[in-house]
Amino acid sequence: MIPYLPADRRARKARICQYLAFAGIVLIAPFFFIGGPQWTDGPLYKSAWNLGHILFFVLLTIAVQPWRIWAGWRLWLFATLAVFLFGLGIELLQYGLSRQMDWHDVLRNLLGLWAVLAVWPRAIRGRFSPPTVWVLRIIVAGLLIAEVGDIARIGIRQYQVSQLLPALYDFSREDPAPFWNGPITATPGNRQNDRQGQLEISLSTNRYSGASLDNFPHDWRGYRHLIVTMYNPQRHSMTLNLRINDVKHDLGDNAYNDRFNIRLELPPGEHSFRLDLDRIRDAPAGRRMDMGAVRRLGLFVSGLTEPKTVYLRDIRLE
């Protein structure tokens, strides 16, 4: 029996890698269109799930082996163009299936390709000078580290959010965007009351105008009351609407009577509202709100005749 030569062993390993890559593609491909994070899921889960784009295109590159067709800079150029167009097609198909398009996913697809091209022996052997190879590897590694670093930062931020209770928001933060939706900005606090910060909510004359807190500690079990402290700089009282709902409401038809709704009369100056959590829990018609999975809290107005501003100074449980 003739033993395998080193070249034969390399070819055999390459074929095994190719077959395993094809198997991985078959397993992963359906998840571009089914499963995955819902719009109600948290930012960490969504970010971690997106790493699947990199893994899929690593496997796809190994399976297709574009270095059998092109070499050198032509390999990088034409393979990049092919993956860009393929990834763009996936995003358009997802959009057609009522899933959200994300142009960052196209970059993640390219990262999967570039990661293989930068290290696969047949893709670089004899095609580039050693300094060029290492420059390419450093660039690709930097992009991958930045991608994973973003997820790590989100993980750290979400851990900090989970440790906020009984507070629902950290008013010392300079950027409320990862936590709030709407026309809201952080402003300096009230030194007299020793506040670290407050949030300015700009209210317009649109039919509905306000802000919603989406990223906060969701398990309210074990607490009795919700405290909301606001400041009204106008010389007259104004009415704000407060709505609170759980995950089940977000996944349903968003019916008005399936959440907690209340009108808050806010006089001039600072005022605190103390709301019974049992009342919030029992608000949905025909069921109880899941107080271990509270998902969204909104403050809004309707039908203003002129723009106004209010300040949120505290929001916490007790």
Rank of each mutant, 00 (worst) to 15 (best):
L59W: 13
L59E: 12
L59G: 04
L59S: 11
L59H: 11
L59T: 07
L60W: 13
L60G: 14
L60E: 08
L60A: 13
T61C: 15
T61S: 15
A63M: 08
A63N: 13
A63W: 06
A63C: 14
A63K: 11
A63F: 14
V64H: 06
V64Q: 14
V64Y: 14
V64W: 12
V64M: 06
Q65M: 15
Q65K: 14
Q65W: 10
Q65E: 15
Q65S: 15
Q65R: 15
Q65Y: 06
Q65A: 15
P66D: 07
P66R: 02
P66W: 09
P66K: 09
W67C: 03
W67K: 05
W67N: 04
W67Y: 09
R68M: 09
R68D: 15
R68L: 10
R68V: 11
I69A: 12
I69T: 09
I69N: 00
W70Y: 12
W70Q: 08
W70D: 03
W70E: 09
W70H: 14
A71S: 15
A71K: 15
A71E: 13
A71P: 04
G72N: 03
G72A: 08
G72V: 05
G72M: 04
G72S: 07
W73H: 14
W73S: 10
W73N: 11
W73L: 12
W73I: 14
W73K: 11
R74E: 04
R74G: 05
R74S: 10
L75V: 02
L75I: 07
L75G: 04
L75Q: 11
W76S: 01
W76G: 02
W76E: 01
W76L: 14
W76A: 02
L77T: 08
L77Y: 09
L77A: 12
L77C: 11
L77Q: 10
F78W: 15
F78M: 11
A79E: 10
A79S: 15
A79I: 01
A79G: 13
A79C: 09
A79W: 10
A79K: 06
A79Y: 02
T80S: 15
T80C: 10
L81P: 06
L81D: 02
A82F: 08
A82G: 06
A82Y: 00
A82R: 02
A82D: 04
V83S: 08
V83E: 04
V83R: 02
V83D: 05
F84N: 00
F84W: 05
F84D: 01
L85W: 05
L85N: 00
L85E: 05
F86W: 09
F86Y: 11
G87F: 04
G87I: 03
G89Y: 06
G89M: 08
G89E: 07
I90P: 11
I90A: 05
I90S: 02
I90E: 06
I90N: 07
E91I: 03
E91C: 07
E91D: 02
E91S: 01
E91N: 04
L92H: 08
L92D: 00
L92P: 03
L93D: 00
L93C: 10
L93N: 00
Q94L: 02
Q94C: 05
Q94A: 06
Y95T: 12
Y95G: 14
Y95F: 13
Y95P: 02
Y95A: 15
G96N: 03
G96F: 05
G96D: 01
G96P: 04
G96Y: 07
G96H: 01
L97P: 00
L97I: 00
L97H: 06
L97M: 09
L97S: 01
